[in-house]
């Protein structure tokens, strides 16, 4: 199944078919659009949350169309609730399909999480236990989404704060198995790895060693907040409200030196700074991609596309 928007049969694509380049990209914020369009320096790509563009028209679509005409686009869903016990909401899947048809994005991704139940939408990415039963359900839901969208999607590893007593698999094995069963690709959120590792007392490098890096097609980086757990020890929160932490940059360097350069998104969703500040974070990521990508173990598989 293809993961880029255009197949050879597409007669006249409205937008460029180029894949996400192995460069730094930014989460698109409405307040930045004018500055972005006036900025001469290149940006690898932009990513939007699909749900914010599920309206019929108006200023949000006008802005995103202008961005899509100039940059590769990644559509990142936050509301499909792929881990839900009550199934994928067909109405929401149709709305996602409309966004994907409208913008022909280079990439579509979603989360290993649930966010809706009969009692409504929680606006949070909630955890699932890693069991054979959850695996069946999640893999089935990913396949259902890919069939409807007629393309491959990426699934993102979560950041979590609690564990389930009934989990029987490691998260990395669970994710590897979802990809094997559904054929999906993976989105590796390195900040999520660091947050979960701290919260659950494991080594992030050990997680990364077990993670199927060969299936990763996009990286997410973000800042996290620090709180305390019941024992007074650090509890990290995936807050997306500040610069990327030093430890997360280090892990990013390690990943890139293994995988080669990958499209890398800087997520900054709360307390969003001015565009130049976010732009500076992108430059940091680009510098690492330039420095370590070419010497990677897996080679520049994306640069060759």
């Amino acid at each position: 199944m293809r993961s880029t928007p255009c197949s050879p049969q597409t007669e006249t694509p409205r937008f460029s078919c180029a894949p996400l380049p192995p460069r730094a990209g930014a989460g698109l914020k409405p307040g930045h659009v004018d500055q972005i369009l006036a900025d001469d320096r290149p940006v690898g790509f932009f990513e939007v949350h699909a749900e914010n563009y599920m309206g019929a028209g108006g200023a949000p679509h006008r802005a995103l169309t202008a961005i899509r005409e100039r940059f590769p686009l990644s559509v990142h869903g936050v509301g499909l609730s792929i881990g839900s016990e009550s199934g994928i909401d067909p109405t929401h899947l149709e709305r996602l399909a409309r966004v994907v048809e409208r913008y022909e994005p280079a990439m579509v991704s979603e989360h290993l999480a649930w966010s809706s139940h009969e009692t409504g939408y929680f606006n949070d990415l909630l955890p699932v236990p890693y069991t054979a039963e959850t695996l069946d359900r999640v893999a089935r839901h990913v396949s259902q989404v890919q069939e409807r969208l007629k393309r491959r999607i990426l699934i993102e590893n979560p950041s979590t704060y609690v564990l389930f007593e009934n989990s029987t698999m490691a998260e990395t094995d669970f994710i590897r198995e979802i990809a094997a069963r559904s054929g999906c690709g993976l989105l590796l959120d390195i900040n999520n790895v660091f947050v979960s590792a701290t919260n659950h007392s494991f080594q992030p490098l050990q997680y990364l060693r077990r993670f199927p890096l060969e299936l990763v097609e996009e990286i997410h980086l973000a800042g996290h907040a620090e709180d305390l757990d019941d024992e007074g020890e650090p509890l990290l929160i995936d807050a997306h409200d500040r610069p990327v932490a030093e430890a997360v940059w280090k892990l990013f360097e390690i990943v890139i030196s293994q995988t080669g350069p990958l499209p890398t998104l800087i997520e900054w969703n709360n307390d969003v700074p001015d565009w130049p500040v976010l732009r500076r974070e992108l430059s940091l990521a680009d510098a690492i991609l330039d420095r370590l990508g070419p010497a990677s173990l897996l080679g520049s598989r994306h640069a060759a596309e």
Binding site: K29, P30, G31, V33, H49, E51, N52, G55, G58, A59, P60, H76, V78, G79, H111, N123, D124, L125, S159, Y161, A222, A225, E226, D227, I237, D238, A239, H240, D241, E267, N269, N270
Partner: peptide
Amino acid sequence: DCAAGPGTTCAGTS
């Protein structure tokens, strides 16, 4: 004019 209402977040909050 930018105010398109609440944006989604895939982040947690402290």
